[in-house]
């Protein structure tokens, strides 16, 4: 098992190198001149040139790239020009906010989508099946920013049951002492139930928005995979052996259907990382997505590079996890496959 993880991690190294190169080139290819931006509209040509030299932007590209690699090796993602903070610190501070949202939404989506998909597959044509189809159609056809705005409009503005979309905590609360960076967990560690409730209340709408978005592909894939497996020969054998329907459904059918579902979950998680950018804007969530958008608007290279790099590393980590899950579920997957 450890050998497998090691090999897969090694295989990810070329990906990471590629990511570093592409991020570097892409950020340089963006329109806008950061030197001019920082010098301000009234700056003279000399002042702009001065700033350009200071930022190292007058160097040839390869020279800038080598400097960038050297910084990376020291764990230095550079300074954010707009906030004056170290990008690494900024990202580490904001990453838990994004992850807490994403992971919780994925959990919620799975808790709803897996049983829904199974029920729909075992009772094709029933009302559960139709409900499953309706929900998945809605989930894929509603754009995520629209769902987010709609939920905020209905539950905060019209009904007033949800707290205002102002980020992770109402201004009346101060964040819990940091252990994991996840407010829900940290507030429980601090034993502060009121704080837990406040943090949870803030999460309801953004989590619901994200969960509705990813519920659809998971439920659809579960239903399709279960339908395929339930009509397979080995399920017929299990039924012919008189195994109880529960055993047939879970030990035989569901475990086999998990394979494509796990793949889907990996893909869905990647979508969610991307959608975070939108969700965080809608709900004023202080995550890394909104950070990256702000930086991009201001031609602030370093945070954008850092953001893309962190996202790419997360991607690689998720794929590694899915590979490992696969080998746990399916004995046919070998280390070399």
């Amino acid at each position: 098992m450890w050998q497998l993880i090691g090999r897969r991690a090694l295989a990810a190294i070329p990906n990471v190198i590629g990511i570093v190169v592409v991020t570097f080139v892409l950020t340089r290819a963006l329109p806008g001149d950061p030197a001019a931006f920082y010098a301000g509209p009234a700056a003279t040509q000399e002042a702009v040139e001065q700033i350009r030299t200071k930022l190292g932007l007058d160097q040839p590209l390869w020279r800038q790239f080598i400097d960038y690699l050297g910084d990376l090796a020291r764990g230095d993602l550079g300074l954010s020009l707009s906030t004056g903070q170290q990008v690494l610190d900024e990202i580490l501070r904001r990453l838990p906010a994004s992850l807490e949202l994403t992971l919780l939404a994925l959990l919620v989506a799975c808790v709803i989508a897996l049983p829904l998909g199974i029920l729909a597959a075992t009772r094709p044509g029933s009302w559960v099946d139709h409900a499953c189809r309706l929900i998945t159609t809605l989930g894929v056809s509603l754009p995520i920013f629209f769902t987010g705005l709609l939920l905020a409009y209905v539950f905060y503005y019209l009904l007033g049951v949800a707290p205002p979309p102002v980020g992770r905590l109402d201004s009346m609360f101060s964040p819990p002492p940091q252990w994991t960076g996840f407010y829900l967990i940290d507030s429980l560690i601090a034993g502060d139930l009121a704080l837990f409730r406040a943090a949870a209340a803030q999460m309801v709408l953004p989590v619901a928005t994200l969960a509705i978005f990813v519920l659809a592909p998971i439920a659809r894939m579960t239903r399709a995979a279960m339908l395929g497996v339930l009509s397979s020969d080995f399920v017929r054998t299990a039924r012919a052996s008189g195994l109880s329907s529960g055993t047939v459904l879970y030990k035989y059918a569901f475990r086999n259907a998990m394979l494509p579902v796990v793949t889907t979950m990996g893909m869905v998680f990647s979508f969610m990382l991307g959608s975070n950018v939108v969700i965080e804007k809608v709900f004023a969530w202080p995550g890394i997505g909104s950070f990256a958008v702000d930086a991009l608007m201001q031609s602030d290279y370093a945070p954008v590079q850092g953001f893309v790099l962190v996202m790419a590393l997360l991607f690689v980590a998720i794929n590694l996890m899915i590979d490992i899950l696969y080998t746990v579920i399916d004995p046919r997957v070998t280390i070399d496959a």
């Binding site: 020969d233 080995f234 017929r236 054998t237 195994l243 086999n256 579920i329 399916d330 046919r332």
Partner: peptide, 18 residues
Amino acid sequence: GREAAMIFQNPRVALNPI
């Protein structure tokens, strides 16, 4: 499976693969 059992063709796919 207890009183009346059945076996099938293509045994490789008639057994749970995992």
